[in-house]
């Protein structure tokens, strides 16, 4: 069987999205389920079938989501409405839309890496925390001795006060 020629294939759009906080590792499959749930809740099953979303890649705190052309606005709205992935609070922020994955990857290559630049013990509001530092003087505080708790989001100036 001959493959369908490119001109007869459905046109796609690719959306680059940033996942926050960077400390949470989200798998592509979990992200897809969260997006599918959000899309179905906003546009119903027929909308989901029309949009045909798929998570193409999900690494390093960024994800590339594919959809049918002209539905990218709806996908952006559904990404903005995603607030949890596997019961962990996450923000999915669409950054850029493109017709090819290559241009998104080029854009991604020019962006700063989102890796922690240090870890320190911190004392805030009378309690002990582990502080994870990120570029831009950002500090995420995780309380010691508690698992799966929500972090506090501060800056280095807040810790110094």
């Amino acid at each position: 069987m001959k493959p369908r020629p490119p001109t007869m294939r459905g046109k796609r759009r690719y959306i680059l999205a940033r996942l926050d906080p960077p400390s949470v590792a989200v798998s592509g499959r979990d992200l897809y389920y969260a997006i599918a749930e959000s899309l179905t809740s906003l546009y119903g099953d027929s909308g989901m079938a029309r949009i045909q979303p798929s998570v193409v890649s999900c690494t390093g705190g960024y994800a590339i989501i594919r959809c049918i052309r002209s539905t990218e606005g709806q996908v952006s709205a559904c990404l903005a409405a995603v607030h949890q992935v596997q019961e962990v609070s996450v923000a999915v922020r669409s950054i850029r839309t493109s017709g090819t994955m290559r241009s998104l990857r080029q854009h991604l290559a020019g962006m700063k890496p989102r890796v922690p630049c240090g870890e320190q013990d911190a004392y805030f509001q009378g309690r002990s925390w582990t502080g994870v530092q990120y570029p831009g003087a950002k500090v995420d505080l995780f309380e010691k001795g508690f698992k799966n708790q929500q972090p506090l989001f501060l800056t280095e100036e807040d810790l110094e006060e």
Partner: peptide, 18 residues
């Protein structure tokens, strides 16, 4: 109530489109 709940201007345009 958290930085995770803050929306970008782009997200606001998308949500207001609803």
């Amino acid at each position: 109530r958290s930085i995770l709940q803050m929306k970008s201007t782009r997200d606001m345009v998308a949500l207001c489109g609803l």
